[in-house]
């Protein structure tokens, strides 16, 4: 019975994961990915990791909402209800993906992992809490510092205020002599898509 539920959830996770790259709309893609995460979270709940499973669900709901906002910011087809294809090196990618799956699946089928299940009645949430915030707190501290550095880095990277003025005006350094051309190396050409607004 549990096997059936888990198999169904895994299939759903894989199917929605596949849909991510098969739907036309960016919004559909990001929420398809969210469904894939929700299915994995549900597997976690079934496999006696309720906190991890539910945390996956709520974290991914937030993350995919942010993802959808960014999609809308950057895509030429924001509402995304019209068909479009944006892929490159399709064959290489498909072969690489297929090989990765085949290799990992072969490893899974060939391996003989131990079979120690979680003992029934274990309070896994409390165990996680003690492990996370116990005497050493190593993971918690490491994750905390990493996330702090990420926040600082992300804010600096995405800030409009560049070193030499607004980033979207090129943030050019001043010339070496008054009124001269900007100092430093000049980037050649723009990026490409100037006209999707």
């Amino acid at each position: 019975m549990t096997d059936l539920v888990i198999a169904a959830l895994c299939l759903f996770a894989v199917w929605t994961g596949w849909r991510v790259f098969r739907v036309d709309s960016m919004v559909r893609a990001s929420f398809s990915l969210m469904l894939s995460f929700v299915a994995v979270g549900a597997v976690g709940v079934v496999l006696s990791a309720p906190y991890i499973g539910i945390a996956t669900i709520f974290m991914m709901a937030v993350e995919m909402m942010v993802m959808a906002i960014f999609m809308v910011m950057f895509m030429m087809n924001p509402a995304g209800l019209n068909p479009m294809v944006m892929v490159h090196q399709h064959r290489v990618a498909a072969v690489a993906g297929g090989l990765a799956f085949a290799g990992l699946a072969a490893a899974v089928l060939a391996a003989d992992p131990p079979a120690a299940r979680v003992a029934t009645g274990t309070d896994t949430v409390a165990a996680l809490g003690h492990e996370l915030l116990g005497p050493s707190m190593l993971i918690f501290e490491t994750a905390g510092v990493t996330l702090l550095a990420t926040m600082v880095g992300a804010v600096i990277l995405s800030s409009r205020r560049g070193r030499f003025g607004p980033a979207d005006d090129g943030s050019r350094p001043p010339g070496l002599e008054p009124g001269g051309p900007p100092a430093g190396r000049q980037p050649e050409g723009g990026g490409g898509h100037h006209h999707h607004h």
């Binding site: 309720p50 906190y51 709520f58 974290m59 709901a61 909402m65």
Partner: peptide, 18 residues
């Protein structure tokens, strides 16, 4: 009666936005 009941409510809040 989940040991992570409050996280379930948190997930409901997050999914509501979606």
């Amino acid at each position: 009666d989940s040991p992570a009941g409050i996280a379930i409510w948190g997930a409901c809040e997050a999914l509501t936005v979606v």
